[in-house]
């Protein structure tokens, strides 16, 4: 089931940039493809509305890919006793940047894993590498039992 709700910006008391937002969109999803598609459409509409001077499709693909990778990470690192995992994806708009967040109930993880050595034909380990290469800012916060991976991309210089 997919639920959308408009959430007011929360004042968490810290001084992070997330407070700037007046509205966030959140969806609880079980299907990574739906999450990735929502991410692409959201990013494309965002870029078009902001009259993005670059390639709008590429901007959309950036978010589609990053959210797909984050979603796959959430599924791969879930508690093995959980069969069906629900991941929450969210988007936060700023005047010059879009942030996608992927929240799960997994154990904390290292967002700086070693980069795979490509000449050794690695089969995995590309997920976070792709996210870091695509995005301008990546961070992970722990809120209670939840991991929230935030991925931010600017459309123009701040």
């Amino acid at each position: 089931m997919m639920t959308f709700r408009q959430l007011p910006a929360t004042n968490t008391g810290d001084h992070s940039m997330t407070q700037i937002l007046s509205a966030t969109l959140k969806a609880e999803l079980k299907n990574s493809r739906i999450a990735a598609n929502i991410a692409r459409s959201t990013a494309e509409v965002f870029a078009e509305e902001r009259h993005f001077s670059g390639n709008v499709q590429e901007f959309g693909h950036t978010f589609e890919l990053a959210v797909s990778e984050a979603f796959t990470n959430s599924v791969n690192y879930r508690d093995p006793s959980i069969k069906d995992i629900t991941v929450t994806i969210g988007f936060e708009e700023e005047s010059n940047a879009l942030t996608a967040s992927v929240t799960d109930m997994n154990a904390p993880f290292n967002i700086h894993p070693p980069e795979p050595e490509i000449t050794e034909y690695p089969e995995g380990g590309f997920g976070l590498l792709i996210i870091w290469k695509l995005m301008d800012e990546v961070s992970c916060s722990r809120e209670g039992q939840r991991n929230a991976l935030s991925m931010k991309k600017f459309i123009s210089r701040p």
Binding site: L65, E123, F126
Partner: peptide, 19 residues
Amino acid sequence: EFIDSSGLGLLVRLARQKK
């Protein structure tokens, strides 16, 4: 129309086998 690291990993695995 879309490939991510999971699909890429499979192709890399295949490349290693072929090599």
